[in-house]
Every structure is written in C-alpha cells, then in structure tokens.
C-alpha cells in the first residue's frame, strides 16, 4: 500500500502546486488503530500526512456536499460512485473536482478484528496479503481476505467510476459474485419471522444517527427524524420508532446507495444496517436494471420512469 500512498502524495502535491485545486481531501492516520480520518490538505507541508491503507473505509464524498472551491478528492470505487451521485443531485459540480481514483483492494472490518482479541489492540500494520495485529503480550498475522468488510467482499466496482488521475493501475473486478444471498434469506422468511429478525437486529440501536451522518446521501437540511410538526418518527428508542427510522433512512437511499459500507462501519453497536439498503439495491437492479453512481448521464431510478414499468402488484 506504500506505493499507493506515494502516488497519492505525488499527485496531490502537483495539483496543489499547479493551483489546480485549493485543497485535497484524503486520509491521514487516526489516533486509534484501524480508524483513518478524513484529512483536508491545503498546504505542501500537510501532504506528508496523507496515507492509504486498508483503513480508509470512510466515504469521502460525504465531505463534498455544497462546497464551492476546487477540490482534489481521493476516491475508491464506492466513493467515486457517491461522487457521481452528488454531481447528479447538484451537491457539487463536476468542474470543481479533480478526482484521484484509487483502484481499491478492500477495507478491513475493524469490529470483526477487535472481536477476535480479548485484549486491546495497540497497533495494526499490513502488507499486500496480511494484517498484523499487535497488543499487550500478543501479535498475530491475519489473512486480509478473511477480515475484509462484508461489503468489500462482495464489491464488484473496486475501480473508480470516474477519475481524472489514478493512484495505481486499474484492477480486475471480482466476477461471479452473489451480492444478495443474505437478502434472499430474509425474503424467504414468513412475515412473523421477518418481523422478529428485524426486531432482534435493531434492538441494540441507540438512535445515535452515526449511520446517517456517515452517509454521503444524507444531506437534507432537516432530516425527517428532526421534523416535529408533524413528527413522523418519535425520538425515543421505542422499537416502533427505531424501525421507522431505519425504514425511512434506507428508503431515502433507494437507487442512490453504493453499498460503500460507511454506515455500517460507523455504527457503535455493530448493527448490520446494510441489510436494509441492500434490499433496495437488489430491487432497483431487478426492477429497473439500475446500479447507482456508474454514469453521469443517466437519471436515478426514482427520478424517471418507463411507461411499461412492472406493476403486477397494482390492482
């Protein structure tokens, strides 16, 4: 990954020096292991902070909303698709951006790794294939593929969808991936079991909204959870309110979600919230042949229609 970092630094330095951009949005090392932070680089001295490794799971498109300056942005496959979505939704202009595409080898699942060890992890490093985890009195080497984030395991768009520069050669995309095994399992359940499944899934939710805040799609000036007259969803952790929150959060991402996993990654309770958005993703693909964020020229599925759209559910 050090070659990625070097290339990212080189491109960023050049873009800043030539004044093509006013800042570069990338990642720097976090203060705790496996938690790289977004980093806004505006001066040549700050370039050295930039890093790239398997801990860059935050979606940087989230930091573009409504910005006015010229920006260089580091974009892995999913980030680039959210950038496309942002452009389509007029949250940023294509001309404002210099997209530094990163052909992505997947991000690691910090929750999974933390749960594998009893003691606190103090340091995590990596090479091409392995993740080396160190803590008080232990050191262990893990195979990176075994600890990838769930969404990265099934990712079929690792290469950026749009870019102006590339931090590495494009990768072969994963083929023959079944993206919806988990969704189909739930679809096959009886209604009562589905209800129970989601009740259990959501019971740890503390309504902190980290999943919403991490998502680049959630930029409404007033989120429905904050509306009070009428109040569509109560603010308590009453299970009905929590369920309504998750329903609407996911529904608002319909046809827009890129399965970047930032929401799931942000959840302090380890709730697998992608199971909602994946259902919508599957339906958008099956009903409308749509995958989010791949093209600037196509309207998203809920902003268009075909006269012969499926309607067998309508009397």
């Amino acid at each position: 990954m050090s070659d990625y970092t070097a290339k990212i630094k080189e491109i960023s330095a050049r873009l800043l020096k030539e004044e093509k951009v006013e800042m570069v949005i990338g990642f720097r090392k976090g203060t705790v292991p496996m938690m790289n932070e977004p980093c806004f680089v505006k001066t040549p001295e700050d370039i050295k902070k930039l890093v790239w490794d398997s801990n860059c799971g935050i979606n940087l498109a989230n930091y573009l909303t409504g910005r006015k300056e010229k920006i260089g942005i580091i974009a892995k496959g999913c980030d680039s698709r959210n950038i496309v979505t942002h452009i389509i939704e007029n949250k940023i202009k294509r001309e404002q951006l210099l997209i530094i595409g990163v052909p992505c080898k997947g991000m690691i699942d910090k929750n999974k790794i933390i749960s594998m060890f009893e003691n606190e992890i103090n340091e995590v490093s990596e090479n091409e294939e392995n993740i080396i985890v160190k803590g008080e009195g232990f050191e262990k080497t893990l195979n990176k593929n075994d600890v990838l984030q769930e969404n990265c395991k099934i990712c079929i768009h690792r290469n950026p969808a749009i870019y102006d520069e590339l931090a590495a050669d494009l990768l072969d995309e994963q083929k023959d991936i079944d993206r919806y095994e988990d969704v189909r399992k739930i679809e096959a359940m009886a209604p009562e079991d589905k209800w129970k499944y989601f009740e259990d899934l959501l019971s740890p939710c503390i309504r902190c909204y980290a999943c919403r805040n991490a998502c680049p799609l959630c930029y409404c000036p007033t989120c429905f959870v904050d509306e009070s007259k009428p109040q569509w969803v109560g603010k308590s952790i009453d299970p009905t309110d929590t369920r309504t929150f998750h329903f609407l959060r996911a529904y608002h991402c319909a046809g827009r979600c890129t399965d970047c996993g930032a929401c799931e990654r942000a959840c302090p309770m380890g709730i697998k919230v992608r199971i909602f958005t994946k259902k919508l993703e599957k339906d958008c693909l099956e009903l409308y042949g749509w995958e989010a964020g791949l093209s600037l020229d196509e309207r998203p599925p809920l902003d268009t229609y075909r006269p012969d759209d499926p309607e067998d559910f309508i009397k």
Binding site: K196, F247, E311, I314, K315
Partner: peptide, 25 residues
C-alpha cells in the same frame, strides 16, 4: 409507481404481511 414498488417490497421485507398494503388504478 416506482416509489410504491420499492416501498411495498421493503415494508414486506421487514415483516408487514403482503395483504395489508394495497395499490390500485
């Protein structure tokens, strides 16, 4: 129609019985 299709599928996915939500023209 598109909003309804996605909505109906999602609400049933989450455990509302199919016979509770109806659409017609």
């Amino acid at each position: 129609r598109r909003k309804f299709a996605l909505f109906k599928n999602l609400i049933e996915y989450m455990g509302i019985e199919p016979g509770r939500l109806h659409f017609s023209w």
